[in-house]
Simulated scan of single mutants.
Amino acid sequence: MTGKIEARLAELGVTLPEAPAPAANYVPYVQVGDLLFVSGQISQFPEGMIKGKLGFDMDVTEGAMAARRCGMSLLAQARAACGGDLDRIVRVVKLTGFVNSTPDFGDQPKVVNGCSDFFVEVLGDAGRHSRSAVSASSLPFGVAVEIEAIFQVR
């Protein structure tokens, strides 16, 4: 039987990727009590990474799409941590978004909205969260966006 969150993803036409493997010496998630800390997920499509620098070779719309892809990977990690049951997610508690951007680019919040809007679209009010959206002069592999999350789970 498909859970409510999986059904909502299907309704939206969203297929989550497999939970990406860590790229270095860390684990993809850690659960402490009812909090699930998911390591930063980079912007990527199944065929490869979404690279670029906001304010140079990417615009806000492209950046928000990259952030949405980070949100999909974050949910994929949460699904793996929850034994395949996304309905164990109670709410998204916090996001921290890093945007690869030029020194004069100031729309990091609009970029990270791609992930925030995705979570609200999928989870409703449980997707609303606290958040930071900051600039980075570079990100791993030259990706455009990296986002980490804290979920409350049951």
Score class of each variant (00 low, 15 high):
Lys110Trp: 02
Glu148Gly: 05
Thr15Pro: 00
Val112Ala: 14
Asn100Asp: 02
Ala78Asp: 03
Met49Leu: 15
Pro22Val: 12
Val153Trp: 03
Val112Glu: 09
Asp104Thr: 14
Arg69Asp: 07
Ala133Gly: 00
Gly48Arg: 04
Val90Ala: 04
Ile50Asn: 09
Glu121Thr: 11
Ile147Thr: 10
Met65Leu: 14
Val153Phe: 03
Thr102Phe: 06
Gly3His: 09
Gly48Ser: 06
Ser137Tyr: 09
Gly33Ile: 06
Arg88Glu: 10
Ile150Gly: 01
Phe105Tyr: 15
Val32Gly: 00
Gly83Thr: 02
Phe118Glu: 04
Cys115Phe: 03
Met72His: 14
Arg91Lys: 15
Gln41Lys: 13
Gln41Arg: 15
Ser135Asp: 00
Arg131Lys: 10
Arg91Asp: 05
Met72Ala: 13
Arg91Ser: 15
Asp87Pro: 04
Gln152His: 08
Thr102Pro: 06
Arg131Trp: 11
Ile147Phe: 11
Pro46Glu: 13
Asp117Leu: 12
Thr102His: 05
Ala7Gly: 09
Ala66Leu: 05
Gln152Gly: 02
Ser101His: 04
Leu36Asn: 12
Gly52Asn: 10
Arg128Cys: 10
Leu9Pro: 06
Pro20His: 08
Cys82Thr: 14
Gly3Lys: 07
Thr2Ile: 07
Val134Glu: 09
Ala23Val: 14
Ala136Asp: 04
Val153Leu: 02
Leu36Pro: 13
Gly84His: 03
Ala126His: 07
Ser116Pro: 00
Val38Gln: 07
Asp34Met: 12
Glu6Gly: 04
Met65Ala: 14
Pro46Gly: 08
Gly33His: 10
Asn100Thr: 03
Phe118Met: 14
Pro28Ser: 09
Gly71Ile: 07
Tyr26Trp: 13
Gly124Arg: 12
Ala149Val: 01
Thr15Leu: 04
Asp117Ile: 03
Lys53Gly: 00
Phe151Lys: 01
Cys115Met: 10
Lys53Pro: 04
Leu74Thr: 06
Ala126Ser: 14
Met49Ile: 05
Ile147Lys: 06
Ala64Thr: 11
Pro20Asp: 03
Ala7Ser: 14
Gly55Glu: 13
Gln41Asn: 11
Met72Glu: 15
Gly97Gln: 09
Gly13Ile: 06
Val60Phe: 03
Glu18Arg: 10
Asp125Glu: 14
Tyr26Pro: 02
Lys94Glu: 13
Ser132Gln: 14
Gln77Cys: 11
Phe141Tyr: 08
